[in-house]
Design a protein around this nucleic acid. Structure first.
Length: 423
DNA sequence: TACGATT
């Protein structure tokens, strides 16, 4: 049964349901009939922690908005903005396309003298992003390295021999472009690519695929801590047929210089089942307006204020690294390049990532948690993984949580082994 | 009941 949406899509929006074929929009249409093609924009590569209000403020600073919507999934942020005036849409593209937004400010407070070439670990809490207990270590040898690992591109507030303040800018350039009219031909045009050389950049990935058509978005997944490519990426083409051709041409092929063939297939579409609800949200009533004289407020909104906005300021203590770094590369159960991986067994089917954050966060820096789910049911398969930065903390967590009673279940917790590849 | 990995 379709959800009832009182202010749902109108039949004449260019991005409305595809049941209404608008290949030839008629200028004869009158009244509420509008052509959104010159006012409706899609914004890609937004910072993941941007709020609706910030999104609205930023684009409202260009001109009066008919409607806008920020869509968020786990990692990516994208949105739609529909202006009243096509000139404002054009201005938004010229002004905001390619902009790198500031995503947060980090303050690091040294407990003692700290030299640029010291080996230090900084605890960087990202509680504002993930969970109150999420902490992340950045292991650095030089200031620049820390900078790169955070993914920043600019920095300020530098004091010689002491890192004390960072302004972190989005790694991605925001992409602002006209939204494409909805049609069957642009659907399911997203590809999942795996087996990529770890050295391949996003640009090189796009170059490889661009021979098959126009690329809308691309992405290479990277390790959260090291920033190293995971060899997995996504390419969204303009047209489904372009994606099909790219699969034919590139699946199982070795990119020049690569030693392994890549796999190219259609990406799963996790939001498919709820896409109808998503669409309903996107196309709000044209009659909906902001309260008050927003037009003037928006005009006076200063872009500088948004760019300089601090999303969260924290204090951190640098900790000198011990001999642990010498363990990197050794084959030790649980140890990975980014920390110590812990296997957690006997989770309930309804478990989600938050339970793992809550269980392990108190023991120290948790880099990453993952609940393994059945693809079809989306229920937890009974186990999960937690990666912690420091051995001592991971060991303490295991010692404390193995045998821990969670509800009516007794957890089994240990370092992850490599069963699957044992010969 | 047991060692993943699709934004």
């Amino acid at each position: 049964m379709e959800p009832q949406v009182s202010n749902g899509p109108t039949s004449n929006t260019s991005n409305g349901p595809s049941t209404n074929n608008r290949n030839c929009p008629s200028p004869m249409q009158t009244g509420a009939a509008t052509d959104d093609s010159k006012t409706n924009l899609i914004v890609n590569y937004l910072p993941q922690n941007m709020t609706q209000e910030e999104f609205r403020s930023l684009f409202g600073s260009i001109g009066e908005i008919e409607s806008c919507k920020l869509v968020r999934d786990k990692i990516t942020g994208y949105g739609f903005v529909n202006y009243i005036d096509p000139k404002d849409a054009e201005k938004a593209i010229n002004t905001l396309n390619g902009l790198r937004l500031q995503t947060k400010t980090i303050k690091l407070e040294a407990t003692g003298p700290c030299r640029c070439d010291d080996k230090v670990t900084y605890l960087v809490s990202q509680a504002d992003v993930h969970s109150a207990r999420f902490q992340q270590h950045f292991v650095i040898q030089r200031e620049q390295t820390l900078w790169e690992q955070i993914g920043a591109t600019q920095r300020m507030g530098h004091k010689e021999n002491l890192i004390d303040s960072f302004y972190v800018f989005s790694k991605k350039e925001m992409k602002v472009s006209y939204a494409r009219p909805s049609s069957a031909s642009i659907r399911d045009a997203n590809l999942y690519v795996s087996g990529l050389p770890k050295t391949m950049t996003q640009k090189e990935l796009e170059q490889l695929f661009s021979q098959y058509g126009r690329i809308i978005t691309s992405r290479i997944l990277v390790d959260q801590v090291t920033g190293v490519s995971r060899g997995v990426g996504f390419i969204r083409f303009d047209k489904r047929i372009e994606a099909e051709e790219a699969i034919k041409g590139l699946n199982g092929q070795k990119p020049s210089g690569a030693t392994e063939p890549i796999t190219v297939k259609f990406a799963n579409n996790p939001s498919q089942k709820s896409s109808q609800a998503l669409l309903s949200q996107l196309y709000q009533s044209p009659n909906r307006r902001y309260p008050g004289p927003l037009h003037h407020q928006a005009q006076r909104f200063r872009l500088d204020n948004l760019l300089n906005m601090a999303y969260g300021v924290k204090r951190f203590s640098p900790i000198t690294i011990d001999g642990m770094t010498s363990l990197v590369g050794m084959n030790i159960p649980g140890h990975t390049g980014t920390g110590w991986c812990i296997f957690v067994y006997n989770l309930s089917p309804d478990s989600d990532e938050s339970v793992l954050w809550q269980l392990f966060g108190p023991f120290g820096a948790v880099n990453n948690v993952k609940v393994i789910r059945d693809f079809n049911t989306n229920k937890c398969k009974g186990f999960g993984f937690v990666t912690m930065t420091n051995y001592d903390e991971a060991a303490m967590a295991i010692a404390s949580l193995n045998g821990y009673r969670l509800g009516d279940r007794v957890l089994q917790v240990s370092f992850k082994t490599n069963k699957a590849h044992k010969s």
